[in-house]
Design a binder for these strands. Structure first.
Lengths: 181, 181
DNA sequence: ACTAACCGGAACAGGATCGTCCACTTACAG
DNA sequence: CTGTAAGTGGACGATCCTGTTCCGGTTAGT
């Protein structure tokens, strides 16, 4: 592959992530192309159709999050690690992209085994962290990883929430075990 | 107005609310017409364009919620009343409609003074209830009506949340004052 | 029974987006 | 320096979708 082609490929994925974050999953291909500084023709040579591009962006994103989560797992205090991870995911820039990706039709994503694999690993990693928080006695027993995942999704995927981090902290306060008395 | 025309008018608003709840604010007029058991022609005789119809549904909805809120204000225990009101709004059927209405362009709604008036009254009523809850000492001082409104919106407007009531309760747990110690 | 109001849905118009195609440009090997 | 194959960009055709109009047929109400 020629050097300029390689560079454009990178710009395309990057631009796609930005534009999807700003305009949702329906963002026109032409807009992505313009942002990347290329023509739509170039887009379609790299990604045969819109689904392929969305999947590529999705894979990129999940890989990123999963790596951060792996780091959280290496910390000794699970509850603190969970809170830190939540705060990290709540970063507004990331959230908007997650929101767009959440609306991408499942079949476009499911076609990529690598994406599916990482998404499953993501779920398992959260579950492990939650289990450790339970063991530490810091997390209400009636709140599991399902709840955590839902809350993350709700607060990060919806750009109309002004300060997702703030709300997630309130939420975690609600989920923390009450000391008896 | 002929009796059958009157009846159809009612069916249209009702059907529009249902369809908007299921398909979001982009729901096609044809779908609403079919659900109401009328032709699109009938729709357009009552509501000159799509904006008018959406505004009518919005007004209907806000009136409903405001009335329920007025009832909450008459209860002696503000914190309990707030929790009960939140649970009521979280009813899944209502939430989906609220979600659709939240996406309706502001200008379509702002054209209806009655709607604007009621929406403002809604905000004030929540603020009054929250102030009383503060006075009772049941609500964290750093959480105000802004937070309550945001949370209501986040959990009720997004149909992908499985059990909004459950999450709102967790949230309210987080917002409740901690007894010292 | 008569008529004016009402009805349904086919058809039309406008707009948006995807994906193709091809004439032009550029990297880079020899 | 130069030839050429890889790369590029954006006009354009095809498709789809939805709001709105229009009118022949129907019906409530007198």
């Amino acid at each position: 592959m020629r050097a300029d082609a390689q560079k454009n490929l990178g710009k395309i994925v990057e631009a796609a992530a930005e534009v999807l974050a700003e305009h949702g999953d329906q963002a026109p291909m032409a807009l992505i192309a313009r942002r990347a500084g290329v023509g739509v023709g170039t887009l379609y040579r790299r990604f045969p159709d819109r689904g392929e591009l969305l999947a590529a962006v999705g894979e990129h994103y999940v890989r990123h999050v999963t790596e951060r989560l792996a780091r959280a797992e290496r910390e000794p205090d699970a509850w603190a690690a969970l809170r830190a991870f939540v705060a990290w995911v709540a970063d507004p820039g990331r959230g908007a992209l997650a929101g767009a990706l959440a609306e991408v039709p499942e079949e476009a994503l499911a076609a990529r085994p690598e994406f599916v694999r990482m998404r499953e690993e993501y779920g398992r990693a959260v579950a492990r962290l939650v289990a450790r928080a339970h063991a530490e006695g810091r997390l209400r027993p009636d709140a599991g990883s399902t709840e955590i995942m839902t809350l993350l999704k709700v607060f990060t995927c919806h750009p109309e929430v002004p300060d997702p981090g703030r709300y997630l902290e309130l939420m975690l306060d609600g989920l923390e075990s009450r000391r008896p008395g």
